[in-house]
Deep mutational scan, measured.
Amino acid sequence: MTEYKLVVVGAGGVGKSALTIQLIQNHFVDEYDPTIEDSYRKQVVIDGETCLLDILDTAGQEEYSAMRDQYMRTGEGFLCVFAINNTKSFEDIHHYREQIKRVKDSEDVPMVLVGNKCDLPSRTVDTKQAQDLARSYGIPFIETSAKTRQGVDDAFYTLVREIRKHKEKMSKDGKKKKKKSKTKCVIM
């Protein structure tokens, strides 16, 4: 069974824990209790493949930012979460993405942009803004509501699919490099 290491990042209060708990335990946590770091595991079937999701729910508070490099190193894919009623959390996505790329030393890291709290009427981040940002990053965008469960499975499952595509691409690139290195030079 394939294991996928997913990391949920975003500013404090955007609903990272609520999304994760909704996926794992099928219930909505409405009281806000700032996370330092929590880890969850769940076995699911995605596109006919049974897999184990190892999900790291991270601290959004700035005082825990020193811990970010460590979990970013171990993560295979990242859910970059903002709240649709919090423009600052949307603007912060850029910083999370840049930090992930720096730590992973790669421009090509599996990510999904997630606009959470889409059940709320007080939207300050337009869907088109988020779609445009995701398009500019070359990553999928999904709106979710941890409260109603809308888009929750889709967000995590899409990230797994992005990781699969990335692994497939990397193995193809690896095979191309191996083929090239088999060419021999004969000096007579």
Rank of each mutant, 00 (worst) to 15 (best):
M170N: 14
R149M: 08
T183Q: 14
I142S: 02
L133D: 03
V186F: 02
K184G: 13
T183V: 01
Q150T: 15
A130D: 04
V186R: 01
M170C: 11
Q150P: 14
K128W: 04
S136A: 13
A134R: 01
E162N: 04
K128G: 06
A155C: 08
I142H: 03
T158Y: 11
D153V: 12
D173R: 02
F156R: 00
K165C: 04
E162F: 02
K177F: 02
H166F: 09
E162P: 00
V152N: 07
V125Y: 13
K128R: 06
D132K: 05
K178N: 12
V152G: 07
K128L: 09
S136E: 14
D153M: 13
D153F: 09
A134D: 04
S145W: 04
A155Q: 01
S136V: 07
Q131Y: 06
H166S: 10
R164S: 13
A130N: 06
G151L: 07
G138Y: 00
S136G: 07
V152F: 13
Q150R: 09
S136H: 11
D173C: 01
Q131M: 11
E162M: 07
C185V: 06
D173M: 02
D126G: 11
A130S: 06
T127I: 14
V160W: 04
D153W: 07
V125A: 03
K128P: 05
Y137T: 07
L159V: 04
S136K: 14
K167C: 03
Y157G: 13
K128N: 11
F156Y: 06
K169C: 09
K165A: 10
L133I: 09
T148A: 05
L133E: 06
S136N: 09
M170G: 12
L133Q: 06
G151A: 06
Y137G: 06
R149E: 11
H166Q: 09
S145F: 02
R149V: 10
Q150W: 06
D154E: 13
G151H: 08
S145H: 13
R161W: 01
D132M: 04
Y157K: 13
L159T: 00
K165T: 08
A134C: 05
K147E: 13
D173K: 04
E168F: 06
C185I: 02
F141G: 01
S181G: 10
H166T: 11
I139S: 03
D132E: 11
K165V: 04
E162S: 05
K128C: 09
A146L: 02
D154P: 04
V160Q: 03
R135E: 09
A134H: 01
A155M: 11
V152W: 15
A155T: 02
Q131C: 06
V152I: 13
I139L: 10
D126H: 05
D154G: 07
V160C: 05
R135L: 08
K184P: 10
S181W: 01
L159H: 00
S181E: 14
H166N: 11
V152D: 05
G151F: 09
K169M: 09
A130E: 05
G151P: 10
K167S: 07
K177G: 08
V152L: 14
I139H: 02
M188F: 01
L133A: 07
T158E: 12
T127F: 15
V125C: 05
R135Q: 09
D154S: 09
A134I: 02
A155Y: 00
L159N: 00
S145C: 12
E162R: 03
M170A: 03
K172V: 06
E162V: 01
R164G: 12
R164H: 14
S145N: 14
K167T: 06
Q131G: 13
F156I: 12
A130P: 04
K169L: 08
R164C: 09
R135S: 09
D132G: 04
M170S: 07
S136Q: 12
V186A: 15
C185M: 13
L133P: 02
T158D: 04
L159R: 00
V152H: 08
I139G: 02
T148G: 10
K172P: 09
Q131V: 08
E168N: 06
K177V: 04
K167M: 03
D153I: 12
E143V: 03
Q129E: 09
Q150L: 07
D154Y: 05
D126K: 10
K169I: 10
A155L: 07
R164A: 13
T127A: 08
K167R: 08
A130T: 08
L159K: 00
K175P: 11
E162T: 04
K165R: 08
D154I: 05
A134E: 08
D173F: 05
V125M: 15
V160E: 02
I187G: 15
A155P: 09
T158R: 05
D132S: 05
Q131N: 08
V186S: 14
V186K: 01
D132T: 04
R149A: 14
L159G: 00
Q150A: 11
S181P: 11
V160T: 05
I187L: 14
G174S: 10
R164K: 15
R164P: 00
